[in-house]
Design a protein around this nucleic acid. Structure first.
Lengths: 141, 141
DNA sequence: TAAACTATGTAGCCTAGGCTACAATTTGAC
DNA sequence: GTCAAATTGTAGCCTAGGCTACATAGTTTA
């Protein structure tokens, strides 16, 4: 029977959780685009769509959001590129993802499940918690 | 430089993460309604809205979704009630929330941050990972 | 090089989750 | 018992994130 937190506190948490969702997609896109640029030399909307399992139209719409957010640029029929800001975001996301996966595995979660769950969890991990994760991993190596 | 997972794998994870979001809200509502019913004897739309920091109109719309999902009932101007299914969901959510918070605290995350982060994280933790959390907590007590 | 195929882009629709504005109901104060 | 205030409900609008259908631009190939 959890007691209710103060109203304001809960409202603040709630709002933060909701808004995290709108940035989560952009983070995932930035990371994948960075990976594609590194691995394939280019990031095409069709590839991005296929990776995420969505229609190319959906991918293109999200790419537009990336552009509006100043994270990416795109030349028609030439693929998508990350801005400085986009690269920085992708890097942060990659580091965070690794840390979350490593932590889950350290706690005994099988690799497959760790990778899958990290995908959802990582967008909700604060800096403070991230630091605690890193500290914990260091302490037991 | 994470290597890319197989396309199908990534697409599946992605889809799961996205669909988790639509149930996350219902889970939060079910839990709060259960708490209000226990603590206050009734769960009014206005109280729910205030707790979550949204307008009452938004709360009412979400309550409609709960009803459509068979999780709640409501008598006009008489408050909201949980069905059996709704109660079961609220219980599961409460247990999971506690477990996630306890784990974060065990890892050295300050209580405030643990509570806040758990709010977002809990909706993405699979059964397998949950079991690993419980196991870890048992092993160090 | 023209035709066929693939990739890209656009338009329009849907649901979820927000909002404000307004209408109706209930409660409480006189 | 009536009137004012608070609560509840409804309507309509917005953005995000999906989709399908269609149009256009490149690329391949016969």
């Amino acid at each position: 029977m959890a007691k209710l937190p103060a109203e304001g506190t809960q409202a603040r948490r709630f709002g933060k959780t909701r808004s995290a969702q709108s940035t989560a997609l952009l983070e995932d896109y930035a990371e994948l685009i960075a990976d594609l640029l590194t691995g394939e030399g280019e990031a095409r909307p069709t590839d991005i769509a296929r990776r995420f399992g969505v229609s190319h139209a959906t991918a293109i719409k999200t790419i537009s959001r990336l552009k509006r957010a100043g994270l990416a640029t795109a030349r028609p029929y030439r693929g998508v590129f990350l801005t400085e800001k986009g690269h920085a975001l992708a890097d942060r996301v990659r580091v965070r993802h690794r840390l979350v996966v490593d932590l889950l595995r350290a706690l005994g979660v099988p690799t497959e499940a760790a990778e899958a769950d990290a995908e959802g969890i990582e967008h909700h991990v604060s800096e403070i918690t991230l630091k605690a994760f890193a500290q914990f991993l260091r302490s037991r190596s």
